[in-house]
């Protein structure tokens, strides 16, 4: 299968001659694949995501979407290929959930700039996929953290992208919504065939739901592979600078990390 996203030897740093935030990042994402990006604070996870979405430009290396360079895309073209759900999302003005999800249709709109039946249908489908259709008329800022997070994913789905990038989608969510979020992500990958790249602080969840994980340390790839291969006691202890115990989750058989006192 041809990869949807290819990064070749990416390097990035703010300002010339200064320390690199990311170096020698090379990997590919396949259709339907869910990749988790793990690493301690400041290891470059969010920066990597912004590079993939063209918000930042790499100093070295190239990013390809299928057979085309990222730099050759117009923003509207890119928004039809790739959607991003970022951490920071505050609406200063009152928008209803439906209006927010319809924003995802912006790159698809015609010259008139109004949504048609096709756009309304895509938005409805996205609301249904994220179980948020009952919220359609509500104001986004009235929603709980979990609801808002799902609405933002609905907006990303309304873009009908091939790749979806998620920055800490489970921060501030309680157990139930964390599980729901990762189950939704799994559906996106397995049923809809999207490539999903998810940055997470939650090693255990990533271990259970991701096909592969990429462990970042100080801006370089420490290890990339299946959860079983990457989430080991020595690797996690080294990257996070914290002694840990890793065993198997009795329910799923995936690696499970515990902090040692």
């Amino acid at each position: 299968m041809a990869p949807t996203l290819t990064l070749t030897d990416i390097g990035f740093g703010y300002g010339y001659g200064e320390a690199r935030i990311l170096e020698h990042i090379t990997f590919q994402v396949l259709p339907g694949e869910i990749i988790g990006i793990l690493g301690p604070n400041g290891s470059g996870k969010s920066t990597l995501l912004k590079l993939m979405d063209g918000i930042l430009s790499p100093r070295e290396g190239e990013i390809w979407i299928r057979e085309r360079r990222l730099t050759d895309f117009k923003r509207s073209e890119l928004a039809r290929e790739m959607a991003m759900v970022s951490q920071e999302n505050h609406f200063r003005f009152a928008f209803s959930v439906m209006e927010v999800v319809l924003m995802g249709r912006f790159p698809h709109l015609g010259k008139m700039g109004f949504e048609g039946k096709r756009d309304a249908a895509a938005a409805m489908e996205a609301l249904e996929a994220t179980h948020t259709e009952h919220l359609a008329h509500r104001s986004v800022e009235e929603l709980s953290g979990g609801e808002k997070q799902r609405v933002l994913i609905a907006r990303a789905l309304a873009q009908e992208p091939k790749v979806i990038l998620l920055d800490e989608p489970t921060s501030f969510l309680d157990l139930k919504y964390k599980r729901e979020m990762f189950r939704l992500i799994t559906t996106l990958g397995k049923d809809k065939g999207l490539s999903v790249v998810v940055v997470s602080h939650d090693i255990d969840l990533a271990s259970q739901y991701c096909d592969r994980v990429l462990l970042l340390k100080n801006g370089v790839i420490h290890k990339l592979g299946t959860p079983d291969a990457v989430i080991t006691a020595p690797d996690i202890a080294e990257v996070y600078d914290c002694p840990v115990h890793v065993d198997q989750n009795p329910a799923t058989g995936k690696p499970r990390v515990s902090i040692i006192r």
Binding site: I55, E77, A79, A83, S86, F91, R92, M103, G104
Partner: peptide, 11 residues
């Protein structure tokens, strides 16, 4: 109004 980065990501 939803944020400049968000706007750029949406095209």
């Amino acid at each position: 109004t939803a944020g400049e980065e968000t706007a750029a990501q949406l095209g």
